[in-house]
Computed example of a mutant assay.
Amino acid sequence: MRNLGAAPLWSLGFRPFFLAGAGFAALAVAIWALWLYGRLPGAQPLGGMLAWHRHEMPFGFAGAVVAGFLLTAVPNWTGRPGVRGWSLIGLFAVWLVGRLAWWLPLGPTGLLLMQAPFLPLLAVLLGCDLIAAGKRENYPILLVLALLTVCQWLTLAGMASDDVGLQRRGVLAALWLIAALMSVIGGRVIPFFIQRGLNRPAASQSYPRQTQTLLVASMLVALCVAAGGNDQPRVWLAALYLLISGLHLVRLWRWHDKDLWRVPLLWSLYVAYAWLLVAAAAMALWHAGWIAQQSLATHALAVGGVGGLILAMIARVSLGHTGRPLTPSKTVVIAFGLIVLAALSRVLLVPISALGLGVSATLWCLAFALFVGRYAGWLLGPRR
């Protein structure tokens, strides 16, 4: 037990949270799909399978990967050692308990108590380092984590009170907050990765106002969703979503380099980020009354944007931080392709075929299972 805290797995936050997050992504969607097609009889989680699925994808899966990335990035930003050893084990245990709590006879209050600590603890641990280092430019990340916590409480309160509308608003608001966080992080790292990956000269402009506008607009969307403003089409919200999609389009145009399409670690990020544009544009069209199903826009964001960016990011970050060449194996390149096909199936195939959900879920599970199978040994073992 004394040596447990010194194991490579607990040396930096990306190791346990990327591995567990990717594994949970495959397992959770497999459970959801099997239940959806009537292949999973027996006990259900507290609140039912739909409530579990809605909560666990943003707060369980995405929450784990966000934690792993930030726990790895903040030490680089601040020059401080970061969370590791037994402190990291404790934080991971809080996340794991939250996943298991759904299947225990706790009742709504017990479930809330088991779920509530993770995001606030993460924010406190990150905040201590950011404040100590005076990194004020990163304080908005703490604000997003605080708002995510509120969204989680709304979601769980909706489940406890059997208020499906409140539960749904909390989940969708959280999804757009995660997109906001990925916009901020993506705006920092994607141009850097492209520049390094293609040996291009460093960009002369960082466009901080564009990033700030995108963050504020995305947070406004999340607040409107949480307040119920997204329940019915509204023209002014269409304009806000259109602004967000336009900012994403400008970014993609500035980042584009024809040679990125020959580098899997770059095109996977670029394509995944493009799904953020697609999702925002589709939401604008829904609010304008031009498309019928809001869920298609939501899943373009969830599967293509969040899922795609997470898979591409954890693949790249894990290679760099375990000391391996930035060249993914063919297995992982296949996983990049599968997640794109999963998103396309969820958005384009579902409206015309009852098999669309099953196809999308299968492709998603295969993509993350391939990542786990290829990277597990590296994440568990020492740095090269």
Rank of each mutant, 00 (worst) to 15 (best):
Y375W: 08
V317A: 13
G358Y: 00
L326Q: 15
G307I: 09
A376C: 11
V340Q: 12
L344P: 02
L366F: 14
V317C: 14
F371T: 01
I352R: 10
A343T: 00
G377V: 03
L319M: 14
T362V: 07
A367S: 13
R324Q: 15
V372W: 03
L311N: 14
L309D: 11
T331K: 12
L380A: 14
A369Q: 01
L355V: 05
S353W: 06
T362L: 12
G381S: 09
G307Q: 14
L349T: 06
L379T: 04
I334K: 12
R316T: 15
S345I: 01
A335S: 13
L357M: 07
A315L: 11
P328K: 07
I310G: 05
L355H: 12
L311M: 13
I310N: 09
A376L: 09
L341A: 14
L319K: 12
R374T: 12
A376N: 05
L311V: 12
T327R: 13
A376R: 14
L348T: 02
T327M: 10
R346N: 05
L357E: 10
S353V: 00
F336H: 15
V347K: 05
T327Q: 13
L357V: 08
L380G: 14
L380Y: 06
L370P: 00
A312D: 15
V333P: 00
Y375G: 01
G381K: 05
V347W: 01
F336N: 07
A315R: 08
G308T: 06
L363T: 07
L338E: 04
R346E: 01
G337K: 02
V333F: 03
G358K: 00
P382M: 01
I334D: 03
L309K: 08
R346K: 06
T331I: 07
L319E: 13
I334R: 14
L338C: 08
L341V: 07
S329P: 04
V359P: 08
V372D: 09
G358S: 15
S329W: 02
